[in-house]
Amino acid sequence: MLEAKLADAVLLKRLLDSIKELVTDANFECTEEGLKLQAMDNSHVALVAVLLKEEGFMKYRCDRPIPLGVNLGSLTKVLKCAKDDDVVTLKAGEEGDILQLTYEGRNSDRIADYEMKLMDIDADQLGIPDTEYDARVTMSSAELSRIVKDLAQLGESVRIDVSKDGVRFEAEGESANGKVLLKQTEAARRRYAEDEEEVKNEGDDDDEKEEGGSKRKKVKKEKKENGVKKENEDAEMEDGEKEGEDESGEFKAESDDEGEEEKEEGSDEEQENRKKRKKAQAKATGKSKRAKKSNDDEDGDASGGVSIEMNQHVSLTFSLKYLVNFAKSAALSNKVKLMMSSEVPLLVSYDFGPGHIHYYLAPKIGDE
């Protein structure tokens, strides 16, 4: 049995929008690690690999590996019935013939249930070898999207040239040519390096915050109780002759305080659900310090700055049609990595908190 609860439906919407034009039918493989998808386009030129990690869900249960064969177009239509901030729950039985989707409103005042028929898709999982790439470029995903869309107006192919000067995108058309050079900047290099470090330590930081939060809450409660107690003692010393009134006032203060504590704390289960929801929402929507920091940077660094790690000069040509499709994943992440080596497929990687999406594209050779 599979049960996977995600904090915001918008994550699945954006994910499906990114790949639905590249792949028509595909299997979501459900494992203990999370949901995986791997599929090639019809021409076998591009491959997409998606991972939604188990820890990115509010609740995740997978008793045994289950393939969910879906038509991505149909699943997109069903997901359009959910609000962006709805909590979405995916359920599938052992038979794996029906996928149930439940959408819960943020205030739990609306619950919608949908069922979708699953398909039996015979698809082999390809082994993707670990590759040491000669060039790694980290840049703004919005900037890559703009570049490939602009150059697609001129021609069908783009040559990506990575050197010490930066990364150059060049397209040639029948009536016009275009070139875009993005120079490596020290500010961008530092920013992307800091982002990598934050991603690496994010899990540990979340655990520490939860523990620290519960400790701070306990201390706050003790301080509040001590403060009320001290105020009551002072009132008794100053107005001893008004003991009856003080007692009623003291009783009222304690009642109000207890009410606030009950309202603030709630049950242990509610607190745990709130923590999981906030944690999953922060990862799913990308509302982290990294995103805010990137948006607050100067326009030059945020839009055109790149970070380059290079062993040797690389220059390859790719189809712009596919790169334009890949760039739709800019809605999932504010940065993208391009990894290149001679005679090896280009890897376009987007990391979005609870998972990642990787695109592999074979280079054009000669006049192809």
Rank of each mutant, 00 (worst) to 15 (best):
E170P: 01
K287D: 13
L323F: 02
A123R: 10
I98F: 00
L361P: 07
T138K: 11
I98V: 15
A176R: 07
K117H: 08
R189A: 15
K287A: 12
G244H: 02
V70D: 07
Q184E: 15
E245T: 12
N295A: 15
G34I: 02
G166H: 04
S288C: 07
E231Y: 12
G244F: 09
R146C: 03
P67K: 13
L338K: 08
F352Q: 03
I308T: 09
G227I: 01
D134F: 05
A135C: 15
N42H: 07
D195L: 13
D297Q: 12
K183A: 12
N273T: 08
A193R: 12
E241F: 11
G73D: 09
A188L: 07
P65W: 05
A188H: 01
G173I: 04
N311W: 00
K217P: 00
D17Q: 05
K224Y: 06
K276H: 08
T138G: 10
S108K: 12
V70E: 00
V23R: 09
E245Q: 14
K91H: 00
K276W: 05
A152H: 11
K5F: 00
E258P: 00
A235W: 06
Y192N: 05
V228R: 11
G166I: 04
M119C: 03
V148P: 02
E29N: 12
S157V: 04
E21K: 07
D113G: 04
L90V: 05
L47N: 10
K337M: 11
P67S: 07
V314C: 12
E54C: 09
K278S: 13
S108A: 12
L6Q: 02
E264K: 12
E33T: 06
K59W: 02
E55G: 04
K321G: 10
E32Q: 08
M1H: 10
I160S: 06
C81I: 08
D109Y: 08
E236M: 14
Y114Q: 03
A330V: 06
E250M: 11
K242W: 04
G155K: 08
K292C: 11
A112G: 02
D109V: 04
L11D: 05
D204K: 14
D25W: 05
D63L: 07
D234F: 10
M139V: 03
K200I: 05
D207G: 12
A235E: 12
A26H: 06
K292M: 09
P67T: 03
V306K: 09
L6W: 09
K275W: 14
N273E: 15
A123S: 08
Y103E: 03
K77D: 05
G178R: 06
K221Y: 06
K91Y: 02
K5V: 13
G96Y: 02
E241T: 11
L35R: 03
S255P: 00
E245N: 09
L2T: 01
E54M: 08
S255D: 07
E260F: 03
K252Y: 05
T89P: 01
L16F: 13
L12Y: 08
L316E: 15
